[in-house]
Simulated scan of single mutants.
Amino acid sequence: MEPPKPLGNDVPMPRKPVARDAVLDAYEALLIEVGERAATLDAVAKRAGVSKGGLLYHFPNKEALTTALLERLDLLADEDTELMKAAPDGSAAYFIRSSLWADTPMDRAFVAATRLAEVAHEETRRRFAAIQQRWLDVLAEDVGPEVAKAVSYMGDGLYFNAIFEGGQEGGNAGREADVEILLGVLERLRK
């Protein structure tokens, strides 16, 4: 098979996303948009643009798709935790600033997983608890355990209010002032 032909300036044509990732992305999107019950294997295959056989090649059942989504969430949460630890103004300030919907891979995986938790998917709930504990541990290193809890609730409030108020579609224009207010509160709590 011939390699892709270069576009002007010898730049190769972009490759299609790997089918496995396309299927997982489709499952994630359907969970966000229509929920767990409507995210059937047939719907995922159609959304991903693959045959059901192609989907089943990568994910033999819906639980395998869910496991892959939770692995994605864990990986993204690990990356986020490392960014928190390295933040120049501290993990608590990073946590508050990053608690607005920004349509990042982490946002999408997190919201998709919440749709699984809504239907009492125990493994999802367990993973959420572990991620929250990791975040709390990092926050506690920065501001102590009591303030860490307060920062966690501040971030959760920002995030979920942004989602409920259309943050996924409308952006966070009005929320930036809230972030600055909460960062001021954080500085007072640090003292």
Rank of each mutant, 00 (worst) to 15 (best):
R47S: 03
G184C: 03
D137A: 06
L24E: 05
L30N: 02
E28R: 07
Y57M: 08
A130C: 04
D103I: 14
W135Y: 09
A77E: 02
G167F: 10
A29Q: 11
T81V: 14
P14H: 06
K16C: 00
A129P: 04
A38Q: 15
A43Y: 02
R15F: 15
E36L: 13
A38C: 11
S51Y: 10
G155T: 11
T124P: 06
L69P: 00
I181G: 01
D25N: 14
E122T: 13
L73A: 01
R190N: 04
A130V: 12
F95R: 02
R188N: 04
L65S: 01
L182N: 03
D80R: 10
A112T: 01
R15H: 12
P4E: 00
D178I: 15
D107A: 07
A113R: 01
A68G: 09
A92D: 07
D142M: 10
L41N: 02
Q132T: 09
D89M: 09
L100W: 13
A29C: 05
S99H: 03
A39G: 05
E187Q: 10
D107M: 10
Y27E: 08
R188G: 02
E180M: 11
I32F: 14
M84A: 06
R15D: 11
N61V: 05
A140K: 08
G166T: 01
E169G: 05
W101A: 06
L73H: 02
L7I: 11
N161I: 15
N172H: 13
N172L: 13
P88D: 06
A120V: 15
